[in-house]
């Protein structure tokens, strides 16, 4: 693929900036039909799932993305691999703007950027055998010869720890963990460089979760992959990530090295989130900060800082009126909060 270096010199391949997300927005617009508009005076609703997010992902790293349900983390992941059309902003992959890529160019991008879905029960077609499921990406990436395809499928199944004899089985014949392995094999079929891993273990039994996490880490080492790892389980994110971004209501509130985020959280939301993790080790338990209320609706996010309605460290008027920007307060540690 032809690489176009950026004019303003933002892209610095030597430092390994691999994917750049610039001011990305994804709004879901709910337009009521004419009748409802006239009769019930319903108005257009805009759900701001991802609202102005900028981040870089370096080659070979794992960026963890955490946040509560409805904060837009899955939407962000899906928008990056272009499963959703971004409303605004830019996605730059290896120096190439793929925000509006179409046709062949999009196909090329899809070969390089793949996704592993959260629910291994709904992400596999129940009427297709494993062989059929894994053939689709192989055909799309140009493996036309059936023998070669079969060999690739055998290799893939073997790589994710499944028996190739199960190639002609249907998804229902596998357990949850095994299905997730099929999902991983499907993502690997394209030999991607970048994978969005969307909550890979949240639907899987506890004793199997560690197997899947280890498999993902091994694959990353072996195939030199880059992950965007989305999860709500903070201890899993801590374990796999090099850097972590914390999302709240469509915005990134804090981003930095994993150790910085977990041992020196700056944003009040991150602090509360970390304190809520139940821990096995009694001595490690942090003093619990119990947040009041629930996450406001992304249709009408609060004015000013979006966390101001639940914040226990609110400074006053400013928090309710001025939206804080994501600022670098320590090296590589970004926070969006008026306290800093």
């Amino acid at each position: 693929m032809h690489k176009v270096p950026l004019k303003d010199g933002v892209l610095d391949m030597e430092n390994g900036v691999f994917i750049q997300i610039k001011n990305l927005k994804k709004y879901f617009i709910e337009e009521p039909d004419l009748l409802m508009k006239l009769v019930a005076k319903k108005k257009k609703r805009v759900v701001k799932a991802v609202d102005d997010i900028s981040l870089d992902i370096n080659k070979g790293e794992t960026l963890g993305l955490v946040g509560e349900s409805g904060c837009g983390k899955t939407t962000l992941g899906r928008t990056i691999v272009r499963l959703y059309e971004p409303t605004e902003g830019k996605i730059i992959f290896e120096g190439e703007d793929i925000t509006e890529a179409r046709g062949e160019k999009l196909k090329e991008y899809r070969k390089k950027a793949q996704i592993i879905f959260q629910n291994p029960y709904s992400s596999l077609n129940p009427r297709k055998t494993v062989r059929q499921i894994l053939s689709v990406p192989l055909i799309a990436s140009g493996v036309k010869d059936p023998h070669e395809r079969e060999e690739r499928i055998m290799y893939l199944l073997n790589r994710v720890g499944l028996n190739y004899r199960q190639m002609d089985s249907y998804p229902h014949e596998f357990s949850g963990g095994q299905r997730q392995r099929i999902g991983i094999a499907r993502a690997l079929a394209m030999s991607p460089e970048f994978i969005v891993v969307d909550e890979p273990v949240s639907a899987i039994d506890v004793s199997i979760q560690a197997q899947i996490i280890n498999l993902l880490e091994e694959l990353k080492e072996e195939l030199n992959l880059t992950y965007l790892f989305i999860a709500h389980d903070l201890s899993v994110v801590y374990h796999v990530s090099d850097r972590v971004a914390v999302m709240y209501l469509g915005k990134i509130v804090e981003m930095g090295k994993t150790e910085d985020i977990f041992f020196n959280p700056l944003h009040p939301y991150t602090k509360a989130l970390l304190s809520a993790i139940p821990s096995i080790d009694k001595s490690k338990r942090r003093e619990r900060i119990i947040l009041e209320g629930t996450v406001p609706s992304p249709v009408n996010p609060p004015k000013g800082c979006r966390f101001s309605t639940r914040c226990f460290m609110k400074k006053g008027k400013m928090c309710e009126e001025v939206e804080p920007e994501l600022k670098e307060v320590e090296k590589g540690h970004f926070v969006a909060c008026h306290l800093y």
């Binding site: 004793s207 197997q211 996490i213």
Partner: peptide
């Protein structure tokens, strides 16, 4: 051994990161 395995396989937030222990096999 099952309880031990489960406890070992949970990722912990400690400064040192190690490879996770995984109970082999399936449910």
């Amino acid at each position: 051994p099952y309880t031990k395995g489960l406890l070992k396989s949970i990722p912990k937030i400690t400064r040192k990161k190690e490879k996770l222990y995984a109970i082999p096999g399936n449910v």
